[in-house]
Amino acid sequence: MSQEDVNKIFTALSHEIRREIIRILAEESPKTFSELMNKLDIRDTGTMVFHLRKLEGLVTKNERGEYILTDLGRRAYQIMNQIKTERKEKVKEVSEKIIEKREAETISKTMIISDRLNLYIDKEFLENIRSSGRKLILRDIVNLAISDDIDPNLFNEIVEEISDVISIRAPKKLRPLIELKSRDVLTTEQASLFRAGYIL
Protein backbone atom coordinates (compact mmCIF):
# COMPACT_ATOMS: atom_id res chain seq x y z
CA MET A 1 0.00 0.00 0.00
CA SER A 2 1.43 3.34 -1.07
CA GLN A 3 1.81 6.37 1.16
CA GLU A 4 -0.92 8.07 -0.87
CA ASP A 5 -3.30 5.20 -0.09
CA VAL A 6 -2.38 5.38 3.59
CA ASN A 7 -3.13 9.11 3.60
CA LYS A 8 -6.50 8.50 1.93
CA ILE A 9 -7.44 5.90 4.51
CA PHE A 10 -6.54 8.06 7.48
CA THR A 11 -8.31 11.06 5.94
CA ALA A 12 -11.39 8.87 5.60
CA LEU A 13 -11.19 7.52 9.14
CA SER A 14 -10.64 10.95 10.68
CA HIS A 15 -14.35 11.84 10.55
CA GLU A 16 -17.28 9.98 12.07
CA ILE A 17 -19.56 10.44 9.04
CA ARG A 18 -16.95 9.03 6.67
CA ARG A 19 -16.32 6.09 8.98
CA GLU A 20 -20.04 5.40 9.00
CA ILE A 21 -20.24 5.61 5.19
CA ILE A 22 -17.48 3.01 4.95
CA ARG A 23 -19.21 0.78 7.50
CA ILE A 24 -22.58 1.00 5.70
CA LEU A 25 -21.08 0.24 2.31
CA ALA A 26 -19.03 -2.63 3.74
CA GLU A 27 -22.01 -4.24 5.45
CA GLU A 28 -25.01 -3.16 3.35
CA SER A 29 -23.61 -2.30 -0.09
CA PRO A 30 -24.67 -1.09 -2.58
CA LYS A 31 -26.45 2.14 -1.61
CA THR A 32 -27.81 5.05 -3.60
CA PHE A 33 -27.02 8.64 -2.69
CA SER A 34 -30.48 9.06 -1.12
CA GLU A 35 -30.19 5.80 0.82
CA LEU A 36 -26.89 6.90 2.30
CA MET A 37 -28.36 10.25 3.32
CA ASN A 38 -31.29 8.52 5.01
CA LYS A 39 -29.03 6.02 6.77
CA LEU A 40 -26.82 8.80 8.06
CA ASP A 41 -29.76 11.09 8.84
CA ILE A 42 -28.16 13.86 6.77
CA ARG A 43 -30.52 16.47 5.37
CA ASP A 44 -28.02 18.65 3.52
CA THR A 45 -26.89 17.24 0.16
CA GLY A 46 -23.83 19.50 0.23
CA THR A 47 -22.59 17.78 3.39
CA MET A 48 -23.07 14.38 1.79
CA VAL A 49 -21.24 15.40 -1.38
CA PHE A 50 -18.36 16.84 0.67
CA HIS A 51 -17.76 13.59 2.55
CA LEU A 52 -18.11 11.41 -0.54
CA ARG A 53 -15.45 13.52 -2.25
CA LYS A 54 -13.18 12.99 0.75
CA LEU A 55 -13.67 9.25 0.18
CA GLU A 56 -12.38 9.36 -3.39
CA GLY A 57 -10.44 6.18 -4.07
CA LEU A 58 -12.26 4.33 -1.29
CA VAL A 59 -15.80 4.68 -2.63
CA THR A 60 -16.96 4.33 -6.21
CA LYS A 61 -20.16 3.71 -8.18
CA ASN A 62 -21.30 0.50 -9.84
CA GLU A 63 -22.94 0.29 -13.27
CA ARG A 64 -26.29 1.32 -11.75
CA GLY A 65 -24.84 4.43 -10.14
CA GLU A 66 -24.96 2.97 -6.62
CA TYR A 67 -22.13 3.51 -4.18
CA ILE A 68 -19.82 0.62 -3.28
CA LEU A 69 -16.39 0.26 -1.69
CA THR A 70 -13.22 -0.13 -3.70
CA ASP A 71 -10.50 -2.55 -2.63
CA LEU A 72 -8.90 0.33 -0.76
CA GLY A 73 -12.24 1.11 0.88
CA ARG A 74 -12.52 -2.49 2.08
CA ARG A 75 -8.99 -2.22 3.44
CA ALA A 76 -10.03 0.94 5.29
CA TYR A 77 -12.98 -0.98 6.77
CA GLN A 78 -10.62 -3.71 7.98
CA ILE A 79 -8.34 -1.14 9.59
CA MET A 80 -11.33 0.58 11.19
CA ASN A 81 -12.48 -2.70 12.73
CA GLN A 82 -8.96 -3.51 13.86
CA ILE A 83 -8.70 -0.15 15.62
CA LYS A 84 -12.10 -0.71 17.23
CA THR A 85 -11.08 -4.18 18.43
CA GLU A 86 -7.78 -2.93 19.82
CA ARG A 87 -9.58 -0.08 21.56
CA LYS A 88 -12.05 -2.51 23.15
CA GLU A 89 -9.20 -4.74 24.28
CA LYS A 90 -7.39 -1.74 25.73
CA VAL A 91 -10.53 -0.59 27.55
CA LYS A 92 -11.01 -4.13 28.87
CA GLU A 93 -7.38 -4.28 30.00
CA VAL A 94 -7.63 -0.92 31.77
CA SER A 95 -10.95 -1.92 33.36
CA GLU A 96 -9.47 -5.18 34.63
CA LYS A 97 -6.52 -3.31 36.12
CA ILE A 98 -8.87 -0.87 37.85
CA ILE A 99 -10.90 -3.78 39.25
CA GLU A 100 -7.74 -5.55 40.42
CA LYS A 101 -6.52 -2.37 42.08
CA ARG A 102 -9.85 -1.82 43.83
CA GLU A 103 -9.93 -5.43 44.99
CA ALA A 104 -6.39 -5.12 46.31
CA GLU A 105 -7.31 -1.90 48.11
CA THR A 106 -10.40 -3.58 49.56
CA ILE A 107 -8.36 -6.53 50.80
CA SER A 108 -5.74 -4.24 52.32
CA LYS A 109 -8.48 -2.36 54.17
CA THR A 110 -10.14 -5.51 55.48
CA MET A 111 -9.06 -7.90 58.22
CA ILE A 112 -10.40 -11.40 57.63
CA ILE A 113 -10.41 -13.86 60.53
CA SER A 114 -11.36 -17.40 59.57
CA ASP A 115 -10.98 -21.07 60.44
CA ARG A 116 -11.11 -20.70 64.23
CA LEU A 117 -12.54 -23.04 66.82
CA ASN A 118 -13.13 -20.28 69.39
CA LEU A 119 -12.93 -16.52 68.92
CA TYR A 120 -13.55 -13.73 71.43
CA ILE A 121 -14.05 -10.13 70.34
CA ASP A 122 -14.12 -7.15 72.69
CA LYS A 123 -14.22 -3.37 72.46
CA GLU A 124 -10.44 -2.95 72.55
CA PHE A 125 -10.00 -5.34 69.64
CA LEU A 126 -12.51 -3.49 67.44
CA GLU A 127 -11.04 -0.11 68.37
CA ASN A 128 -7.59 -1.33 67.33
CA ILE A 129 -8.99 -2.37 63.95
CA ARG A 130 -10.68 1.01 63.56
CA SER A 131 -7.45 2.85 64.37
CA SER A 132 -5.74 0.91 61.56
CA GLY A 133 -8.43 2.07 59.12
CA ARG A 134 -9.70 -1.42 58.40
CA LYS A 135 -12.94 -3.40 58.55
CA LEU A 136 -13.51 -6.89 59.96
CA ILE A 137 -14.88 -10.02 58.29
CA LEU A 138 -15.45 -13.19 60.33
CA ARG A 139 -15.75 -16.54 58.54
CA ASP A 140 -15.73 -20.26 59.34
CA ILE A 141 -15.76 -20.03 63.13
CA VAL A 142 -17.22 -22.67 65.43
CA ASN A 143 -17.82 -20.55 68.55
CA LEU A 144 -17.85 -16.77 68.42
CA ALA A 145 -18.16 -14.75 71.63
CA ILE A 146 -18.76 -11.00 71.51
CA SER A 147 -18.14 -8.88 74.61
CA ASP A 148 -20.85 -6.85 76.31
CA ASP A 149 -18.61 -3.75 76.34
CA ILE A 150 -18.92 -3.23 72.56
CA ASP A 151 -21.03 -0.27 71.54
CA PRO A 152 -23.50 -1.02 68.70
CA ASN A 153 -22.18 1.92 66.66
CA LEU A 154 -18.62 0.60 66.91
CA PHE A 155 -19.76 -2.90 65.96
CA ASN A 156 -21.74 -1.62 62.99
CA GLU A 157 -18.83 0.50 61.77
CA ILE A 158 -16.14 -2.18 61.94
CA VAL A 159 -17.81 -5.56 61.38
CA GLU A 160 -18.74 -6.02 57.72
CA GLU A 161 -19.70 -9.69 57.60
CA ILE A 162 -20.19 -12.76 59.79
CA SER A 163 -20.58 -16.02 57.90
CA ASP A 164 -20.39 -19.78 58.42
CA VAL A 165 -20.45 -19.60 62.22
CA ILE A 166 -21.87 -22.43 64.32
CA SER A 167 -22.64 -20.46 67.49
CA ILE A 168 -22.55 -16.79 68.44
CA ARG A 169 -22.70 -15.59 72.05
CA ALA A 170 -23.48 -11.88 72.05
CA PRO A 171 -25.22 -9.19 74.12
CA LYS A 172 -28.85 -8.50 73.33
CA LYS A 173 -28.10 -4.95 72.15
CA LEU A 174 -26.00 -6.32 69.27
CA ARG A 175 -28.49 -8.96 68.11
CA PRO A 176 -30.17 -6.83 65.37
CA LEU A 177 -26.80 -5.88 63.88
CA ILE A 178 -25.54 -9.46 64.04
CA GLU A 179 -28.63 -10.68 62.21
CA LEU A 180 -28.13 -7.98 59.59
CA LYS A 181 -24.49 -8.87 58.96
CA SER A 182 -24.74 -12.65 59.33
CA ARG A 183 -25.33 -15.51 56.94
CA ASP A 184 -25.16 -19.23 57.63
CA VAL A 185 -25.12 -18.84 61.42
CA LEU A 186 -26.57 -21.79 63.29
CA THR A 187 -27.39 -20.27 66.70
CA THR A 188 -27.14 -16.94 68.50
CA GLU A 189 -27.15 -17.01 72.29
CA GLN A 190 -27.23 -14.47 75.10
CA ALA A 191 -23.63 -13.69 76.07
CA SER A 192 -22.29 -14.08 79.57
CA LEU A 193 -19.37 -12.10 80.94
CA PHE A 194 -17.28 -15.26 81.08
CA ARG A 195 -14.41 -15.26 78.59
CA ALA A 196 -12.62 -18.51 79.39
CA GLY A 197 -11.82 -20.72 76.42
CA TYR A 198 -12.17 -17.96 73.80
CA ILE A 199 -8.94 -16.84 72.21
CA LEU A 200 -7.97 -14.47 69.40
Rank of each mutant, 00 (worst) to 15 (best):
L154K: 12
K84V: 02
R175W: 15
G73K: 00
D149P: 13
L193T: 14
K88R: 08
I79Y: 07
L136G: 02
I83A: 03
E100G: 11
N118H: 09
K90R: 11
M1L: 07
H51N: 10
A26P: 02
T11N: 13
A196N: 13
Q78M: 10
L144R: 09
D140K: 12
S114H: 10
V91G: 00
V6N: 08
Q78K: 08
K123N: 13
I150H: 03
Y120A: 03
K39A: 14
I21N: 02
L144H: 09
I112Y: 02
I141D: 03
D184I: 02
Y120K: 02
F194E: 11
I42M: 08
I83N: 01
E16T: 04
E100N: 15
F50K: 13
R116P: 01
D140S: 10
I113E: 02
M37H: 11
I121W: 03
I24K: 13
T106C: 04
R74I: 04
A12M: 04
F155G: 07
I21P: 01
R23H: 12
K135C: 10
E93D: 08
I21A: 04
V91H: 04
S29V: 05
N38D: 14
I166G: 01
E100M: 15
D184C: 07
K97R: 15
I146Q: 00
D5R: 06
A145Q: 09
A76K: 03
I42H: 07
R195F: 15
L180N: 08
K39G: 09
N81V: 01
E189C: 06
K8G: 04
M1K: 07
L177M: 03
Q78D: 14
V142T: 06
S132C: 06
I121D: 01
K172T: 12
L174A: 01
S167F: 03
P176T: 03
E127Y: 07
Y120Q: 00
L52D: 06
E56N: 10
L13S: 05
E100R: 15
P176G: 03
S182T: 09
K90I: 00
F50S: 09
H15M: 06
H15S: 04
I68C: 12
L55T: 13
L138W: 06
I9F: 06
I24L: 15
E127H: 07
Q78L: 11
E96T: 15
D149C: 11
L177Y: 02
A196L: 13
E56D: 11
T188Q: 06
I107H: 08
I83C: 02
E189N: 12
I99D: 07
D140C: 08
E161W: 05
N38E: 14
D148Y: 10
R87Y: 10
D71T: 05
K101T: 14
Q190E: 12
D115E: 11
A12R: 01
L174T: 00
F33Y: 09
L136F: 10
S147G: 15
S167C: 04
F50R: 14
K92S: 05
D71K: 09
T188F: 09
Y77D: 08
L174N: 01
S163Y: 11
G57I: 00
Q3L: 07
M111D: 12
E89Y: 06
K39D: 14
L119E: 03
L144K: 08
G57Q: 04
E66H: 11
L69G: 05
D122N: 15
L200Q: 14
F10E: 05
A104T: 11
K173C: 06
I21L: 04
